[in-house]
Design a protein around this nucleic acid. Structure first.
Length: 633
RNA sequence: GGGCACGUAGCACAAUAGGAUAGUGCACUGGAUUGUCGAUCCAGGUUAUGCGAGUUCGAUUCUCGUCGUGCCCGCCA
């Protein structure tokens, strides 16, 4: 076996994927990986692949190039001998002449009109057989792909995705620089602040028993940039959160983080809309201004989003809105349905109140033409139960408005039945789904069912955008959430969000009424961005802390540096963080965040390739002044 | 913390209702082959039922545990 060769005199003239008919007659030097190889005895075809694409190279000693191409018969013969041995994923260099393929052109390849007749060959690496084929439509477990991620990334779709990421980063940098933002860096190793996402901790060798936290976002620091007078900032930055993972959540992920001074919510929206219009135009060639005149995205109030879709990130590519039936049920005193009567009664006697986290009744229709079978509908109940529902009551609507296939049908009063049909707009053959109980549960269940059913019915694809991009700003959420467990009000976003001016009087008297300048940007049912206008008024800030039950002393301890900064001349400011991996995922139509992150982690946070996280030696732990309590095997 | 699903050769999948020597395609190996491009033809099974226990005459199949992976709920200000 030869030793591995290094590059000496070889200089690449072109990428494989860029050769066209215009190159015919030229001498070229290509580097690349051996893809498909077709051996015909007297001649060998090799698909040579690099990041730009594939070119067919021909090893055929019987075809000498013209006198204008320097070559030797010995080199040509040696090349053919090497080609006989070549295998997939060998790394080679070839020198040759570009010739027309004439009638043999391959219309499937961009380079299909030409091929390269080889006159000289070098083998840099005789690769082992890879564990899976390097092909576009790979059908291999993700586990294996992640274990050999460098091979997975060699595949054209992954190359394309990462090129897209490069592109959108470049566009973001250009655009944000263009609107006056500085790209400034913030520390990853920061002080732990309670609340919010769990932090990864980093032990400090120099400070026994103390820890840094990995920043869950640059939030506090970007506000300090505003206080410092930089006016506008952005950063393409990694964030770290030690929470449980999902299809669209990784322990470390990338945000485009933006903060601007002297702006209101509209100014921020304009900036972000402009960014996304540019990103879509320059990466996918899609003109968002066609569907969004002036490049402005629609807005929906948080309350309306919850009412119609059950969450704050509705997928607007399809309908199937929810309908709140609570008032109707109360009015009919439960309409003969025992469990509904129970709720109605408790509203009447005051056990339940609309101004508290309520119990509600909601309905949703699966249209008749969806053709959902009874068996399929039964399966939905299993799904609903897995999300905390006690069941999934349903009723099929007949032509005369009667209900069938339903335990409710026997007892429901005709009056309420018709009222519900009317409220839902139910027609012959429609299937009504009901959900009742704690509002949070009802919303979770119906919101998830809505998306699940839409996928099942083909209203939206299982994965990907299906050519549709539906943006939405969700605005005016409540400032505080009531935590039933601790019986306390908690900041729904964070304690430094600006309340609406007309909400300020309620901060202490009726916190549930307070709305704020928080906003989420939603694309196809994914939250791709979120931010707020910040609260830079120390007096209002004090009220907020009082409602949260945080004493001044405690606030000082937790956020002292920020509170100080806000007193030393803080401009009005606000910002947003855009989940850049999610944007890349939605742009590329990928099935998960892992497909747009070069080296992602599994759902348990492990790296299949490097086997991180791993155990470390007792010496290392001692150096860091820490002990583990996990039993050693 | 909880629910559901999956794990058979390098990869993807199969194996009647618990039954025979665990099969097929691709990949791979050797040979043939001068216009292929998912090349073709001939030949070859190459450390395969994740791991452990149980039930059984007999387990890829059933049960329990465990490990790994995925999806979801909680969580993610």
């Amino acid at each position: 076996m030869d030793t591995q060769k290094f590059i000496e005199h070889w200089k690449r003239t072109h990428y494989c994927g860029e050769l066209r008919a215009s190159h015919i007659g030229q001498q070229v030097v290509l580097f690349g990986w051996v893809g498909n190889r077709r051996d015909h005895g007297g001649c060998v075809f090799v698909d040579l692949r690099d990041r730009e694409g594939i070119a067919q190279v021909v090893f055929d000693p019987s075809l000498a190039p013209g006198p204008e191409i320097p070559s030797s018969p010995d080199e040509i013969k040696a090349s053919y001998a090497l080609a006989e041995q070549m295998r997939s994923e060998w790394v080679i260099a070839i020198r040759g002449v570009v010739v027309s393929r004439g009638a043999n052109a391959n219309p499937k390849l961009p380079t299909g009109e030409v091929e390269i007749r080889v006159v000289q060959t070098e083998v840099f690496n005789r690769a082992d057989t890879p564990p899976f084929e390097i092909v576009d439509d790979l059908d291999t477990r993700e586990e294996v792909r992640l274990q050999y991620r460098y091979l997975d990334l060699r595949r054209a779709p992954m190359q394309k995705t990462l090129r897209l990421r490069h592109k959108i980063n470049q566009v973001a940098r250009n655009y944000l620089t263009g609107i006056g933002c500085y790209e400034l860096e913030t520390p990853f190793m920061v002080k732990y602040t309670p609340g919010g996402a769990r932090n990864f901790l980093v032990p400090s060798r120099h400070n026994a028993g103390k820890f840094y936290a990995l920043a869950e976002s640059p939030q506090l620091f970007k506000q300090l940039f505003m206080v410092a007078g930089f006016d506008r900032y952005f950063q393409i930055v990694k964030c770290f959160r030690d929470e449980d993972f999902r299809l669209d959540r990784q322990p470390e992920f990338t945000q485009v983080d933006i903060e601007m001074s002297f702006v209101n919510q509209d100014d921020l929206f304009t900036a972000v809309e402009g960014l996304l219009v540019r990103v879509f135009r320059e990466s996918l060639g899609i003109d968002l201004e066609q569907s969004y005149p002036g490049g402005r995205f629609p807005r929906m109030k948080y309350d309306e989003s919850m009412r119609l879709y059950g969450n704050d990130k509705p997928d607007l590519r399809f309908g199937m809105q929810h309908v709140d039936l609570t008032d109707l049920v109360i009015e009919h005193k439960g309409g003969g349905v025992p469990f509904l009567a129970d709720i109605a009664k408790r509203y009447e006697d005051g056990t339940l109140r609309r101004d508290l986290p309520p119990e509600i009744v909601k309905g949703m229709i699966i249209p008749a033409d969806a053709g959902m079978s009874r068996t399929e509908a039964d399966k939905l109940e299993v799904v609903a139960k897995s999300m905390g529902a006690k069941g999934l009551a349903r009723a099929k609507v007949a032509a005369d408005g009667a209900w069938t296939q339903s335990p409710l049908a026997k007892t429901v009063t005709p009056e309420m039945r018709l009222a519900i049909n009317k409220a839902l707009g139910a027609k012959d053959g429609d299937l009504i789904l009901f959900q009742f109980g704690k509002a949070a549960m009802v919303h979770t269940v119906l919101a998830n069912l809505r998306v699940l059913i839409a996928k099942k019915l083909g209203l939206i694809p299982e994965y990907g955008h299906g050519g549709k991009f539906q943006f939405l700003w969700v605005v005016e959420p409540p400032m505080f959430d009531y935590d039933e467990e601790t019986k306390r009000w908690a900041a729904a976003h964070h304690a430094f969000t600006r309340p609406h001016d007309d909400s300020v009087p309620f901060i202490e008297s009726d916190p549930g009424k307070v709305l704020c300048y928080r906003y989420d940007l939603v694309l196809n049912g994914f939250e791709i961005g979120g931010g707020s206008i910040r609260l830079h008024d120390p007096e209002v800030q004090k009220k907020v802390f009082r409602t949260l039950g945080i004493e001044q002393e405690e606030a000082r301890q937790k956020f002292g540096f920020l509170l100080d900064a806000l007193r030393f001349g803080a401009p009005p400011h606000g910002g947003i963080a855009i989940g850049w991996d999610r944007v890349a995922m939605l742009l590329s139509g990928a099935e998960s965040l892992r497909d747009v992150i070069p080296f992602p982690k599994t759902q348990k946070g492990t790296d299949q390739m490097t086997e991180a996280p791993n155990e470390v030696s007792a010496e290392q732990l001692a150096d860091l002044h820490i002990q583990t309590v996990v039993a050693k095997e």
